[in-house]
């Protein structure tokens, strides 16, 4: 099951929708893992988009690649990681023109980073469509050392950079593309509760 309904939260926490076809000159779709299913759903509604679509897919061990290729997009790329795909994403955005539609789907960490790239290129984030699929693990920034810990699924967790024990907040920064992690035992060092899985 790739669809997860996030509980209602604070106003800075991103809210994801369901991808819908929108008029545009060209379409950039970036997905990781189960996000591929959202693209397949979108294509089923509007197969004519594909003639002007560039799909960037990061399978991360999933097997959706061939199905996406069967959609016959104008351009298709598969990369082993977001970091590997990044220079291509930046290149695509650098000479994009207005009328481009951007669709992001998959994990929160990937969508957040791709959204940030589009924002850096001058595209307003409100116009970027997002749909969450797959893992609910989070990309966390340690507010103390600023290091990013990827794929955090437990709360509290240990910062992979400075080693502090951090609790997981819902406060989210688009610019950092991460949630905020704050030291849990600052007032009483060593008093760290047992970790629990997010949304368990």
């Amino acid at each position: 099951m790739s669809v997860f309904k996030f509980p209602e939260s604070i106003r800075s926490r991103p809210v994801y929708g369901i991808l819908e076809p929108r008029p545009g000159r060209s379409h950039l779709m970036i997905a990781d893992c189960e996000g591929a299913e959202a693209i397949l759903d979108l294509a089923a509604q509007a197969s004519d988009l594909m003639a002007n679509t560039h799909i960037i897919f990061i399978p991360n061990g999933t097997l959706f690649g061939p199905k996406l290729q069967e959609l016959n997009p104008a351009q298709y790329y598969e990369g082993p990681s977001f970091a590997a795909a990044l220079s291509r994403i930046q290149r695509v955005l650098s000479d994009a023109v207005m009328g481009l539609q951007i669709y992001l789907t998959g994990t929160e960490g990937m969508m957040g980073q791709a959204q940030n790239e589009a924002m850096q290129a001058g595209y307003d984030y409100t116009a970027i469509q997002t749909e969450h699929r797959g893992s609910v693990a989070r990309r966390m920034q340690c507010v103390h050392c600023k290091g990013i810990t990827e794929d955090v699924i437990i709360d509290p967790f240990e910062c992979s950079h400075c080693g502090l024990n951090l609790f997981v907040r819902d406060h989210y920064s688009r610019r950092i593309a991460a949630f905020q992690g704050v030291c849990i035992d600052a007032e009483d060092p060593g008093n760290v509760p047992a970790s629990v899985e997010l949304y368990s």
Partner: peptide
């Protein structure tokens, strides 16, 4: 609160952690 984290947020987002007022 952290400017480095909150920079770029809108009025509702940077006040998001405040309880009751929303």
């Amino acid at each position: 609160w952290s400017l480095d984290f909150d920079i770029g947020m809108n009025f509702f987002e940077w006040h998001a952690p405040v309880p009751l007022a929303h």
